[in-house]
């Protein structure tokens, strides 16, 4: 399958990328790892007029510890995140999630910034960013994750705005990501992330709505002393997931509850 024709330009700096995006207009797209974009282009579900290739902007490929923050550059590949000693020490849940994105070939190409900017409902990093109150840094501003994911494939990014970094808090207490799927390399049918931090729990849900979801009701129940099983019953509160080929809305809500219990229990070392 051959993608529709497009213009191609390499950017050597974030400023140049932004200028090129402005020049080619709103139908231009940034090309990072390309592992969501290129499949969509081959199916002609996406037909960008131009691709701005940012793979040459080396300063976007970094992992930095910054006090109680962990700064992950937009061009950092999943494989780098998964193997990073800093990530394993400061935010091991992120390393765990990175190891379960796609397969080796996908992890060698796919990037943090690409997943965040693409905002697929089944993306794994957006869930973590939302539940941990991460910041999405662009060439123009810093956007809290809760204000970033607007709708399916829709973010707060402007047409000439480029994600440069995602800033997570350090959190290295009990944690678990349970990604439920039919095939190893597949997207999550539903995913649940649990992270204990600052004495409380953060619970995030993947693919149960157009954007990632923070399970506030579960967090509050746990705060009040509820056991995992009891608190997890609240995981589907207020959810209205869309059905798809793999799961009905009811099944996704069921999975949200079951996987939330598993994530908390496994984070605590129980099975």
């Amino acid at each position: 399958m051959i993608p529709a024709a497009f213009e191609y330009a390499r950017a050597s700096s974030v400023e140049e990328a932004s200028k090129l995006l402005k020049k080619f207009g709103e139908d231009a797209k940034v090309l990072a790892g390309g592992h969501s974009l290129i499949p969509l282009m081959r199916l002609r579900l996406a037909q960008p007029a131009a691709l701005i290739d940012i793979n040459g902007i080396k300063e976007l490929d970094h992992i930095k510890e910054d006090g109680q923050k962990l700064r992950v550059g937009a061009l950092t590949r999943h494989v780098t995140i998964h193997n990073s000693a800093v990530v394993k020490a400061k935010l091991p849940l992120l390393a765990e999630i990175a190891s379960e994105v796609g397969d080796n070939q996908v992890r060698n190409m796919g990037t943090m910034g690409g997943v965040i900017a693409h905002a697929d409902a089944a993306g794994d990093y957006p869930t973590l960013a939302l539940m941990l109150d991460a910041d999405i840094v662009t060439n123009q501003r810093t956007i809290p994750a809760r204000d970033f994911f607007k709708d399916l494939f829709t973010t707060a990014l402007g047409p000439d705005e480029v994600v440069t970094e995602v800033v997570f808090p350090v959190a290295n207490g009990p944690h678990k990501y349970v990604k439920f799927r039919r095939r190893l390399f597949d997207w999550a049918i539903v995913g649940v992330a649990a992270q204990k931090m600052n004495g409380g729990w953060r619970i995030g849900l993947t693919n149960v709505g157009p954007t990632p979801v923070r399970a506030n009701a579960v967090e509050e129940a746990l705060q009040k002393g509820a056991k995992a099983e009891e608190a997890a019953q609240h995981a589907s509160d207020g959810l209205d997931p869309a059905g798809d080929l793999r799961a009905s809305p009811e099944y996704k809500k069921h999975l949200a509850r079951v996987l939330t219990k598993r994530a908390i229990n496994q984070a605590e070392g129980h099975q």
Binding site: L31, H35, D53, V79, N104, Q105, M109
Partner: peptide, 13 residues
């Protein structure tokens, strides 16, 4: 040196 799916990369890359 890295395994990549060559159907998911453009030749220009």
């Amino acid at each position: 040196g890295k395994a990549v799916k060559s159907c998911t990369m453009f030749a220009v890359q």
